Simulated scan of single mutants.
Amino acid sequence: MWSAIVVLSLVGCAVAGPPVTRSRKDIEAFRAYLERSRTDDGLRLESRMLLNPKASAWENSGKFQGDILLTDKQAEVLIQQYAGVGARNAFMWPNTKWPRNTVVYEINNEFTQAQVQAIRASMAEIEEHTCIRFRRKTRFDRNYVLVTGRPDGCYATAGYHETMGMHTMNIGKANPGEGCFINAIIIHEWLHIIGFLHLHSTHDRDDYVHILWENMVEGGDYNYEKFDTDMVNNMEVPYEYASTMHYDRYGFTANGRPTMLPIYNDDGLMGQVDYVTAWDWLRVNRHYNCPWAWETPVYADEISQGRANHAALEKMPQGDVVEDLPQEKVLVADTPQDLEAEKVSVVEEAPKDQ
């Protein structure tokens, strides 16, 4: 059963609740955790999966909240908010939407042809369901996403940053359908690039999940901070356990027991990595103001009363789903005129499978 509504748009966010003054020791411990999350600890994803086999590959990737690669500015603002000294209206990630709804990318040449096709298939699926477009990097592009295959996991930069230049998306090499190369996980990382965090961090998550702090590894609680109502745009889309952006039950467990449980019946879907939901697509379309996105109904009466959202889905006419939204052709003005956002195919030159 899916309950209520939430999405984290990276227009900006702050730790939920009134400012809390923490001890210097607590603040320095949090700072150390964030710094560790931004460096390579030498562990391969396979090793982390052995330590916590019940969590997903992206939860086990060693970054902030598992798979978010923080910038210097993002880390510093998180520290300020944790310490209770950050301004309540200080945006963490302003203007993080990709210009003209177009993600510029380059795929590293370390992947096999099958792996490249899997990456490009995820891009094609995003293009099919949203007005986001992808375009290969040219020599004119300073800001772009470099897709790499380091063995330490699946993770990505959150949002677009004009001064960053190269943005990172890492998909640890594996056979398609395994590890980081599960299609919904690749799309999960693209959604970070596009500008989204995880649903479990939203301000009203405690209405829908129980956090079991006692079962977490030391420092694991940092990954469950909430974000404030006046900083998070929920896009008027329901909170859903089945979202591809939702944690499962066992993230950062110390003892193999759950660290988060659904309050309502989730039909076993919380944290699933089998598919991307219609509401995941709707969040993206609304965040990027795609055509007709805000006209797609989500039955706010069901949401406000906290009823089962799967009932709302059953009532939704087939013609109202986001897959039917018209697609918008996007041009990139700052590059030569012939460089249009491409319609991604799943065929690209790459090294032969080994």
Rank of each mutant, 00 (worst) to 15 (best):
N101Y: 00
L50Y: 04
V6H: 10
R136D: 07
E59R: 01
W190T: 04
V15Y: 08
Y264D: 04
L70D: 04
E218T: 13
A156W: 10
P258H: 02
G256N: 05
E35W: 10
T296D: 04
M235N: 13
V145R: 05
W294M: 07
E236K: 14
V232I: 15
G149R: 14
W98R: 03
A184S: 14
Q354V: 10
E342C: 02
R286I: 14
T335K: 13
M316P: 02
D267W: 03
M92C: 09
H161Q: 11
A174K: 11
V85Q: 02
R24H: 09
T21K: 15
G268R: 06
Y222F: 15
M260V: 08
R139Y: 05
E178I: 03
A121D: 05
F140P: 01
I182E: 12
S61W: 07
A16I: 02
F181T: 00
H310Y: 15
Y224F: 14
L10E: 09
D248F: 00
N143D: 15
G42N: 07
W58R: 02
R307N: 10
S304A: 13
K137L: 06
G306N: 13
V347S: 09
T112P: 10
D152C: 08
N101T: 06
E218C: 00
F140I: 03
K343E: 15
D221E: 14
F111L: 11
E189D: 02
S3Q: 12
I27W: 01
M245Y: 11
T168I: 15
A293T: 04
W279K: 05
T138V: 04
G220Y: 08
K63G: 00
I5S: 12
I187F: 08
H167T: 07
D72V: 13
A55P: 05
D40S: 11
A32N: 12
S3W: 09
C13V: 10
D301I: 11
V11I: 04
Q65L: 02
S56N: 08
I27P: 03
S61F: 10
Y82I: 01
F64C: 10
T163P: 04
L34M: 07
Y33L: 09
R205V: 15
E342N: 02
C180I: 03
P176C: 05
H200L: 06
A158T: 05
V298A: 03
F30S: 04
I182G: 05
A29K: 13
G17D: 10
R142D: 13
P53R: 08
G172F: 06
L212H: 10
C290Y: 06
A55S: 15
